[in-house]
Design a protein around this nucleic acid. Structure first.
Length: 224
DNA sequence: GACTTGATCCCG
DNA sequence: GGGATCAAGTCC
């Protein structure tokens, strides 16, 4: 994250992270979601390592896309690799990455990340210096990174928005689908948070070892 | 448990 | 068209 310079010899840097290609997000959302854990999410110079996400798709009663396209969820039905940002509960924004081929209405909700880049900025925006309170929760995360209505529909790789691979991949490695699951942290699946329908689906994915989750793991969670 | 806004629902 | 409903959350 914090390399000051880049030289040809950095090819062997084992901490190297490179942008995920569009094809990464065109896959089934239940595959994309766990593969995002350990990747780095950045917007405007702030962000860090993703540790908690949830999957949503259009055959899923808990998803905004369940009843088809509307003005609010239009981006979910657009091309993969774009942000779907929605306003909720009268005061908060939540941020998703659109997945699967265009028109399918699937997305991954970003629920927590481990703060790394732009700590000073995030501290001011959140009004706390406690790293555990910066990005541990979907609306906390958007507040810390200053993601709001204006970012709805923003494409990865533009406007200061990026998702970088897990460490150790070259730009060439990351084009190969076999590399997308490499270097995964220990992952648990649990029911999703805060929904009233389809509560049985274990479509929340968390990095078991992270102290930056929005909630503690339930005892019944299962690791893979 | 309160808060606070707006998209969506459903009746008329 | 218009009022009722309630939400992928956070904080006190």
């Amino acid at each position: 994250m914090s390399r000051a310079t880049t030289t040809p010899s950095d090819r062997d840097d084992c901490d190297a992270r490179v942008p995920l290609p569009p094809a990464f997000f065109a896959r089934p959302v239940l595959e994309v979601a766990p593969d995002l854990l350990g990747c780095v999410f950045l917007f405007g110079g702030a962000g860090g390592r993703l540790v908690e996400v949830e999957a949503y798709r259009s055959d899923d009663p808990a998803s905004h896309s369940y009843r088809g396209p509307t003005a609010r969820n239009a981006v979910m039905f657009g091309p993969p690799g774009h942000l779907y940002v929605y306003f909720t509960m009268g005061r908060h924004f939540c941020c998703n990455i659109v997945c699967q081929p265009q028109g399918q209405g699937a997305a991954v909700l970003l629920r927590a990340l481990e703060p790394d880049a732009g700590l000073a900025l995030m501290t001011v925006r959140r009004g706390t210096a406690d790293p555990r309170q910066l990005c541990s929760g979907p609306a906390r995360l958007t507040q810390a990174l200053a993601i709001a209505r204006e970012q709805d529909g923003l494409a990865l790789g533009s406007g200061g928005l990026a998702i970088l691979s897990r460490p150790g991949l070259t730009a060439r490695d990351v084009e190969e689908p076999a590399a997308w699951s490499r270097g995964a942290p220990l992952i648990a699946t649990t029911p999703r948070i805060g929904i009233s329908r389809a509560q049985e689906k274990p479509w929340r994915f968390v990095d078991v070892g992270s102290p930056f989750l929005s909630r503690r793991l339930p005892a019944a969670s299962r690791s893979r």
